[in-house]
Design a protein around this nucleic acid. Structure first.
Lengths: 191, 191
DNA sequence: AATCAACTGGAACGCACATTTCAGTTATCG
DNA sequence: CGATAACTGAAATGTGCGTTCCAGTTGATT
């Protein structure tokens, strides 16, 4: 049903599609990378036209690359929520999220203005998961309740962005961010 | 000496230069603004060529606009350092800095890749002033000393960036950021 | 091997910008 | 009021993209 008379899609095209995706993904981890179609094409040794066609446009290609990176992160967030307490999930997940961001700088640099539906959907999932963590942690008394929960989530997202933007990438910086963030999110000591 | 035989520069040119600068400055406070030469020109009702020529290029125009906004902020930081304790200076200044960023979103959005010498210099001054505040506050025991001072400064800068990026601009969000940041920067409670 | 649709990539195109050109306009000065 | 040099802005130019075209190539199917 899916491929009626054998695959109409040639093997080399499938291979090139995979190569283009891999090259785009690799570029997302390179700090100052140009993130142009030509840069991706050059990396694989293909023509620019071929790279673009494989996914139907630059945006679709990058959407696939970014969402491919993001998908395991989102799954991890949900797994943690199921496995452990919200507070522990929040702490563990934030540590991992910042490590992820440290490893993939390009991911947030030049993506503005692009249409990335799958990525946007995943981001929404991620936000939902973090909101759950915060909500639970607040109930457990480990996160301050004097701030709007949505604001707290935004704060976390922006922290992740800031880590991704750090040049050069620095795990030390990410750790410092996390320390300050978590201490700042704790309920303020009673007078 | 400066204008040997009367001004060689015509009055209308001087006026247009001022108008271009004002328009560029205004655009820096508009969230989704395009920040193109044409957008600036349209705002003043001048031709694009005139706007660019007034400063010798788009970069120079924006450099003038941004540094014009930044200059009082830097002066304020230095004044606070001279007037009061480092801790108080840090708190007061951060509040004002975040309010400034809330008011001028465009300021950090599309400035990447532009050559802004005056702005860069002012930013360096600002960083120096903040470093002084932190250094003093650490000595006063109001800021944790278990983080690298430079990292702490970067953290503050990134927080300011995050506030500038908030859409829509929100003083509430800025306040939340500040609260978390300052609490996170406090020395951790002794066991 | 033969056939043919799928595929490829260099070149052409379209688009958005900043910048430069240049014929016409206008402030300024004698 | 001229005369002249500064100024203006619509159009032309240059640049850096993403995308599309199309003549040539190659994998798949018989």
């Amino acid at each position: 049903m899916s491929t009626p008379t054998g695959s109409r899609r040639r093997a080399d095209a499938v291979r090139n599609r995979r190569l283009a995706l891999e090259a785009a993904t690799a570029l997302l981890s390179e700090p100052g990378a140009a993130l142009t179609v030509e840069a991706i094409a050059k990396k694989v040794g293909l023509g620019a036209a071929t790279v673009v066609r494989a996914f139907g446009g630059k945006d679709a290609l990058l959407d696939a690359a970014v969402s491919g990176l993001l998908e395991p992160v989102v799954r991890r967030a949900r797994d943690l929520l199921a496995e452990t307490t919200p507070t522990r999930a929040l702490h563990v997940f934030l540590r991992e999220l910042l490590a992820f961001q440290t490893a993939h700088h390009g991911i947030n640099d030049q993506l503005g203005g692009l249409d990335l539906p799958a990525t946007t959907a995943l981001r929404a999932d991620l936000v939902r998961a973090v909101e759950e963590m915060i909500d639970g942690a607040r109930r457990e008394g480990t996160v301050r309740t004097d701030l709007d929960p949505g604001v707290t989530t935004t704060l976390i997202g922006q922290t992740a962005l800031a880590v991704a933007r750090a040049r050069p990438p620095s795990q030390e910086l990410a750790d410092a961010y996390l320390t300050v963030l978590l201490d700042g999110l704790r309920p303020p000591a009673a007078p």
